[in-house]
């Protein structure tokens, strides 16, 4: 039986979809059978981030309403063996799916896949409830900003109320140069405030924008810092003990700028 993991955040735009796509690819690259479920009905995006937008025939709502078989709605990612996407419906809204339907869907997926990753919509209403109802584990994505941290705290509280104990935190878009100047909360600061364990940290890397533009998850670029970060997260989900990525010396700090200015190569 596979494991259902929901990727949630409360606040929008912190990187849930990017996280779902990259962690999914990371698990598939490690020979796991993975289903990615876009639960953001009405605001479909996971297909676009994965570069699978032209291959969609049926969607999640078609499956739960019985218009097609589950296996017909799953889009196979030809680049990564074992990776499948269940797209969200674009012309419906969050009320199109009921929690019981989501539980049944996840139980069906559990039988076929090692991991089912659910990309949760922003907010804490029905879309959130649907996305978390069948989950065994939760990953809460936040950024080191006051609004994202506050929303993450709220979501952690709601998850615990739903008996989803010990959610893991993913801190996204860290800028080490700003942390060093004391102008951005550090990993430790965010961890202390939210009092949950960290599953991973991802630096603010322009490669993420570039790879999303192309529909190629950044995790395939093993040299990029963000790619390494997502690989580490996939390994931790599989139970490996991997130290957090060291961001020191990778940022556009003063010394790096000086070196660049003087034309010194590292």
């Amino acid at each position: 039986m596979g494991e259902v993991i929901v990727i949630t955040s409360g606040k929008g735009g912190v990187g849930k979809t990017t996280t779902t796509a990259n962690v999914g690819v990371g698990l598939a690259m490690r020979n796991k059978k993975v289903a990615l479920v876009d639960a953001d009905i009405g605001l479909r995006n996971l297909d676009l981030v994965l570069g699978l937008e032209n291959r969609i025939v049926f969607d999640l709502v078609d499956v739960v309403e019985g218009r097609c078989k589950l296996r017909n709605a799953l889009v196979k990612d030809k680049r990564f063996d074992g990776l499948y996407l269940l797209p969200a419906a674009q012309t419906r809204d969050k009320t199109a799916v009921k929690p019981e339907q989501m539980i049944k869907l996840c139980n069906d997926l559990r039988k076929e896949f090692d991991f089912v990753l659910i990309d949760c919509p922003a907010g804490i209403e029905q879309g959130f409830n649907n996305a978390v109802v069948a989950a065994d584990r939760a990953i809460v994505v936040t950024t080191p900003e006051v609004s994202a941290v506050r929303d993450a705290d709220r979501v952690i509280g709601l998850l615990e109320a739903k008996e989803l104990r010990n959610p893991r935190l993913l801190i996204n878009r860290i800028r080490n140069d700003m942390v060093r100047r004391g102008e951005m909360m550090s990993i430790e600061d965010v961890k202390d405030i939210l009092a949950v364990d960290i599953i991973g940290i991802v630096p603010d890397d322009e490669k993420i924008v570039i790879s999303t533009n192309r529909g190629e998850p950044v995790i395939t670029d093993g040299k990029s810092l963000a790619g390494q970060a997502y690989n580490n997260i996939a390994r931790r989900i599989l139970g490996e003990d991997v130290p957090l990525l060291d961001l020191e010396g990778h940022d556009e700090g003063f010394m790096l700028k000086l070196k660049k200015f003087l034309g010194i190569k590292n």
Binding site: E145, V146, V149, R150, D153, R154, G157, V179, R181, G182, E183, M184, M185, S186, D189, I193
Partner: peptide, 19 residues
């Protein structure tokens, strides 16, 4: 004060009441 300290102080206060 570094802005991150301000952020932390404000967050801690607001979270107490949120929670």
């Amino acid at each position: 004060k570094p802005s991150k300290e301000v952020a932390k102080d404000r967050l801690k206060l607001v979270l107490i009441h949120d929670r």
